[in-house]
Amino acid sequence: MVAPAEIPPLVQVRDLHVSFRTGDRIIRAVNGVDFDLVPRETLCILGESGSGKSVLLRSLMRLNPPRRTTVSGSLQVCGLDVEHASDNELSDLRGGAVSMIFQEPLTAFDPVFTIGRQISETIVRHDRVSWSEASRRALDLLELVQIPSAKQRLSMYPGELSGGLRQRAMIAMALSCRPQLLLADEPTTALDATVQIQVLVLLRRLQQELGMAMIFVTHDIGVATEIADRVAVMYAGRFVEEGPIGAFVAAPMHPYATGLLAATVNAAARDIRLKAIPGAPPDPSRLPPGCAFEPRCEFAIDACKTGVPELRNLASGRSIRCIRVGAAP
């Protein structure tokens, strides 16, 4: 469901760099990311642990620890320049036009406040309604995310719900002020496989019903195909390939993306030994000067070691960061 090009983008990210200072090391988590997101679109950011995908997502709301984080580049989210916004503008945006759901709902909820109270306080904060009105809306939200016996759950503490219900409650909380953009940080990773698919189906339905855009971070290609319009593969803090999900799954182009798909379990791959990518991702405090994937890449040539490849736009609406793709093998 790609919207027409004349709609102004909801999110516009240009040459984003994010790094952290820890002791005397500098961790370069995001190293030049560009993308646009239009309303009602779902972008899936695919990458393994440490690829910088969660940091990228959090920087869209300026949620990275402020004292240790250095950000450069431009970040427009729902019309707000996130990096230069005042604290007040930012907190109006957070939970209002943009909200986030987290990987582990058990630790993401405050353990000593009830679910109802935690949903209501977001509504009271942004919509300035009474607590009783907020509580009524919290009940509607729990019903919207299909939590059974919602009324009783309102007065329960997070520890008293199952993992799946907790994540539904987290989604309800994120939706409480009708956001235009929902950021999801591996929301199904901590759940059982059967609950995972229920939550995904729910998220997709709500996204369509409420007309939200969504950025969905995951390391699971299965999850990405379930929910995404577009997919971006992230490696060492950069997008290495981006494009419509269908085309990507049918024919990945970047050697890393090809490797990822080859290492994924699917029905066709029964009885075949999965092919792992040799080596490990580079240390984000000591990135190689050239292509970050070059040390692990079976197609690497000497030119790969000099200079980070540009992200090239291809005619098919896809883009790729590899000098070898399209060149003679």
Binding site: L63, L93, G95, E104, A108, M173
Partner: peptide, 16 residues
């Protein structure tokens, strides 16, 4: 703890 990030992500004021 993680939930402190959530509280910030909900746009709550520091006093809350």
């Amino acid at each position: 703890q993680d939930f402190i990030v959530t509280l910030g992500a909900k746009g709550l004021h520091n006093r809350t």
